[in-house]
């Protein structure tokens, strides 16, 4: 379940003049005051009997199971089953449950890309993200540049991702400011009419569910 396709660059949330290097193996890496603080708090809440180590471990393992593949499965199914898509658009939680995916209590709303509308999601105030359906966000989603610019010059931000939306298509930016999270249903790529669900799932990328890119085309899959 690891994200093997990612590089291990130390990306973070601001300009690169003050790096905070860290690596998964704490013993080999410099540690920061906040890493120490995190460990201390984790131990204190266990020692005080507020949580158990088992629950902490289970929570970490549970979040590791949240990854874009879950959302990709949902999207691919909407491409094959219009009735399922209708259910996704009205109730992501119930539709996800049909696939055995529990998205928890924070409501997620699906927004559909069409011939006329391209959707893209941002959280300008913090970094709200449909984590229960597609995992934890990439660093750039939390970056000052993405959070500042997407709401004002979405087409330029999309260009940063190599995505060009024609002028006859409305670009609609969703600012995830409150109690809902948003997942984009990218459009089904042309030339996939006879594809099965498994193959279609491979075309659905994390970025396409944020809306900064389109689903992969058959040629690049």
């Amino acid at each position: 379940m690891s994200h093997d396709d990612h590089d291990h660059s130390h990306g973070h949330d601001h300009s690169h003049d003050e790096p905070h290097p860290y690596q998964p193996d704490i013993e080999d890496a410099p540690f920061t005051e906040r890493m120490v603080m995190a460990q201390a708090v984790a131990e204190l809440i266990v020692e005080k009997g507020i949580v158990s180590t088992d629950e902490m471990r289970a929570q970490i393992e549970f979040m590791d199971t949240r990854e874009p593949a879950l959302g990709a499965k949902l999207v691919a199914r909407t491409w094959l089953d219009p009735e399922f898509k209708a259910r996704v658009l009205t109730d992501v939680k119930a539709a996800s449950a049909e696939l055995g995916i529990d998205i928890g209590d924070i409501p997620i709303q699906a927004i559909e890309n069409t011939e006329d509308v391209h959707n893209v999601v941002v959280c300008t105030l913090c970094s709200c993200y449909p984590r229960m359906l597609i995992g934890l966000p990439p660093d750039w989603y939390k970056s000052r540049a993405y959070r500042s610019r997407t709401i004002k010059e979405p087409r330029k931000v999309l260009e940063d991702f190599g995505t060009t939306i024609p002028d006859n298509v409305e670009v609609r930016v969703h600012d995830s400011t409150a109690d809902l999270r948003y997942v984009v249903l990218p459009a089904r790529p042309a030339g996939t009419d006879d594809w099965n669900e498994e193959r279609l799932t491979d075309l659905v990328t994390r970025d396409s569910m944020i809306g900064v890119s389109l689903a992969k085309s058959p040629e690049t899959a």
Partner: peptide, 12 residues
Amino acid sequence: AVEQTEHDYAIW
């Protein structure tokens, strides 16, 4: 520009 940085989340 949006720098497309990401990393595997560390255990901490």
